[in-house]
Design a protein around this nucleic acid. Structure first.
Lengths: 161, 161
DNA sequence: CAATAACCAACCATTTTGGTCAACTATAAA
DNA sequence: TTTATAGTTGACCAAAATGGTTGGTTATTG
């Protein structure tokens, strides 16, 4: 079972993407600044998210990433699976060859735990997370602290004019 | 969140200990052979289990480890906690300083997941596991394949006589 | 054409995992 | 009292995963 920063970063970034979906594509640079995740690491994660068809990309200036489905259609388990190869608590990947070809003493326990975790995470969609008051509070704070490149460009346009 | 072979090995070894509790202390050498876990790795794990007062040790010939409480009094979460420093899905150890001092966007999600997993594992005791048919089947197979040092010594005593 | 931003591949430092090895201590049996 | 057993401790190690960095290359817009 691996649930480390990789999976957490991916869910956080996807949630950031969902929250800021209003003004067209969201650049990884913006997510990087708001969420404190290195840009190049985000690139690696989004390559996998794109291969799993959870997001689509728009290249060039003003480009970025967009969700590939509605927020209700993406759940947390899918995001973690996409970057993590699966949320599996067994050591054998459910094959049952945990102890030299045979099943180990606790194999079924880890199978049960795996499905427990998967059920829990697959019932939570990005839309669910966005409605949570704690998420909204944190998102507001982050927006205050970091202007997006979109807002930045509005300001510099005003200054130039 | 870390649930790797370390936690799985610990639970497997504790279950082996519970199953073979009939003939006095169980040596790590026996557990090592039956469960296919290296002896020196088991030593490290049992040092932690002992510090957490889940097992007690008996030194010298015929010695080994014993459960420090009844099987109903030991649950899977306790065993994993003992060797793993906690089953925590947050990156900040529940402190809430996940993003430069403040809370990150998905902090509460990982808190929820952590308690979900902990609840699940803490409801399963060693006694529960011993009753499961799949566990009994695997245990019988292992006993057939590997004679314990106790039975070994009985046989060699018979041969000598 | 220049700026932007996704895409991609190679590389790297650190940490964790899953051990090994060697020495030492307590105890029970011969 | 010796000897074998078995826990205890600490140092060490190889391989893998984590969390990046560097240095590019496309594609798109203005």
């Amino acid at each position: 079972m691996r649930l480390t920063t990789k999976g957490r970063y991916a869910v956080t970034a996807m949630l950031d993407l969902a929250i800021h979906a209003g003004n067209g594509p969201v650049s990884l640079a913006d997510i990087s600044e708001r969420q404190g995740i290195s840009l190049s690491y985000l690139e690696q994660l989004f390559a996998k998210l794109r291969r799993n068809e959870l997001v689509r990309s728009v290249r060039g200036p003003g480009g970025g990433y967009q969700l590939n489905r509605e927020q209700q259609g993406i759940n947390v388990a899918q995001v973690i699976d996409a970057v993590n190869e699966s949320v599996d608590a067994t050591g054998c990947g459910h094959t049952g060859s945990c102890q030299d070809g045979s099943i180990c003493l606790t194999h079924h326990l880890w199978c049960d735990l795996s499905s427990q975790i998967h059920d829990f995470l697959s019932q939570i969609t990005l839309a669910d997370l966005m409605e949570r008051s704690d998420v909204r509070t944190v998102a507001k704070r982050q927006d205050r602290e970091h202007l997006s490149s979109f807002e930045d460009s509005l300001i510099s346009a005003k200054v130039t004019a």
